[in-house]
């Protein structure tokens, strides 16, 4: 595992009309960590992840992911990343195997390896027994694990997950966390997640950045951030200190609606 950062942004900025969603963001993520982008709804987490995954062109600034610039070399970036969006991205009208086959072909995995990799991915995610079932019959936790399998099939250097456990029950959440930790252990994959769930950040992430109004308000290992505030401090306390409010405040109607509909589909 190298020490060079695998994600670097410099003054990364995105405007939506007059709204500044991400404001001159400077971020650096080391290879092989699980990195958490934290903050309330509307802090700019999803906008940041969309720019890093090449879905959204930045208004200004730069971002390099796995050695390539997102605006200048988007295809090179795309070859090296996996992405699980907040919404449900597995196709419910297809089986798990068919979903994976579609990904394998879009990423042009060699035909000889396809079957084997798909079977291995299904086993790794604990979905081998349900491989031929239509995904619309899956539980929320199974869908999320399938989506991670899909995003990992081409062995990306960086895996992005937007609110990976939103709407999942505690058991399903733990199962997702375990798989992500295993991926990091087995392949050295760098994982970047967004979350507003402080427990998730605490348990899963080696390093976190607290986002507030499009900027980074605090950065570091969860233990270090908490220790700086005092004994028995939580990440919520850290956020309250740096942002002058609790993490549960804020959020636009659109975000709330989207989060709810995602939770409903997964639940």
């Amino acid at each position: 595992m190298g020490t060079d950062p695998i994600i670097v942004t410099a003054a990364l900025t995105r405007h939506y009309g007059a709204l500044v969603a991400v404001d001159r963001l400077d971020l650096s993520v080391r290879q092989g960590v699980i990195f958490g982008l934290l903050g309330p709804n509307g802090a700019g987490k999803t906008t940041t992840i969309k720019m890093l995954t090449t879905l959204l062109p930045p208004t200004s600034g730069e971002a390099r992911v796995a050695g390539f610039e997102v605006s200048a070399q988007p295809r090179e970036v795309r070859r090296r990343i996996g992405y699980v969006p907040q919404m449900v991205s597995a196709d419910g009208a297809l089986t798990a195997r068919e979903n994976l086959t579609l990904s394998a072909r879009l990423y042009r995995l060699p035909r000889a390896e396809r079957r084997e990799r798909i079977t291995a991915a299904l086993e790794f995610m604990g979905l081998a027994a349900a491989a031929e079932q239509l995904v619309r019959t899956y539980s929320g936790g199974m869908i999320r694990r399938l989506e991670v399998a899909q995003a990992m099939l081409h062995r990306p250097a960086v895996l992005f997950l937007d609110e990976p456990t939103l709407g999942l029950d505690p058991l399903a959440r733990r199962a997702v966390w375990e798989r992500l930790e295993n991926l990091r252990g087995q392949w050295g994959t760098t994982v970047l997640i967004t979350t507003h769930d402080m427990e998730e950040a605490d348990v899963l992430c080696g390093e976190v950045a607290l986002m507030h109004q499009g900027r980074i308000a605090a950065l570091g290992a969860p233990e270090k951030l908490k220790r700086e505030i005092g004994p028995d401090a939580t990440l919520d306390d850290v956020f309250a200190r740096v942002a002058g409010g609790t993490i549960e405040t804020g959020g636009h109607y659109r975000d709330v609606r989207r989060a709810r509909s995602t939770a409903r589909r997964l639940g």
């Binding site: 879905l55 196709d91 879009l106 989506e147 899909q150």
Partner: peptide, 14 residues
């Protein structure tokens, strides 16, 4: 698009 399937497609190098 509302489901997120389009996002998944567009993140691929296809």
């Amino acid at each position: 698009r509302d489901l997120g399937i389009v996002h998944k497609m567009l993140v691929s190098p296809a």
